[in-house]
């Protein structure tokens, strides 16, 4: 047993402090220690993206990061993106355009898409497909995921224009 480390994270706006073994993977910290079960485990070798969260502004596969590495980081999971009273346009769009089926990839997919739309606010279809290629889906064939992201992008752009 190795020496436990003190870890402080800010997850979805809340500060979390705990002692963890260095080998504790961030995905287990979130899921088992903090009961944030939106991010899922699909492949464990950084291919599927079901565990995607945003860490200090980057899309990260949390199964391939130790919690100790994230010391001091700000982390956003699907739970921090929008809830029953304030759904994110991407959450709305995935519902509206049948962008999910079993729902297992969905939290990672939407979390990654929030970042993609920051990187490219009005992406082309090719940019969406390329920018979402770190997230695997076994159910949808991606077509409606692409459609959902396009719809959310249009909605967000329109909202931004209206605000300006």
């Amino acid at each position: 047993m190795s020496k436990k480390k003190h870890v402080t994270l800010n997850v979805n706006g809340k500060t979390e402090e705990f002692l963890a073994e260095p080998r504790e993977l961030l995905i287990y910290t979130l899921r088992e220690r903090l009961n944030i079960t939106g991010p899922h485990i699909g492949c464990e070798t950084s291919h599927c993206g079901a565990c995607t969260v945003t860490i200090d502004g980057k899309s990260v596969k949390s199964c391939t990061m130790f919690a100790v590495q994230a010391e001091g980081a700000e982390i956003t999971t699907i739970e921090g993106i929008g809830g029953p009273d304030n759904l994110h346009p991407l959450q709305e769009a995935f519902k509206e355009h049948h962008g999910l089926q079993c729902g297992y990839c969905t939290p990672g997919m939407i979390t990654r898409a929030t970042k993609l739309l920051e990187e490219i606010p009005n992406p082309t279809e090719a940019e969406i497909r390329f920018g979402m290629a770190g997230n695997l889906c076994r159910c949808t064939g991606y077509q409606n995921i692409v459609k959902s992201i396009q719809a959310a992008a249009a909605q967000m752009s329109a909202a931004k224009e209206a605000a300006e």
């Binding site: 899921r31 079960t37 939106g38 991010p39 699907i78 759904l87 519902k95 999910l100 729902g103 297992y104």
Partner: peptide, 20 residues
Amino acid sequence: KRVEDARFTQGKGNYVDDIK
């Protein structure tokens, strides 16, 4: 529209590994 999607899009699905 699917009634399942509200929970799935908000990370509130309940899969077996979520059981504690």
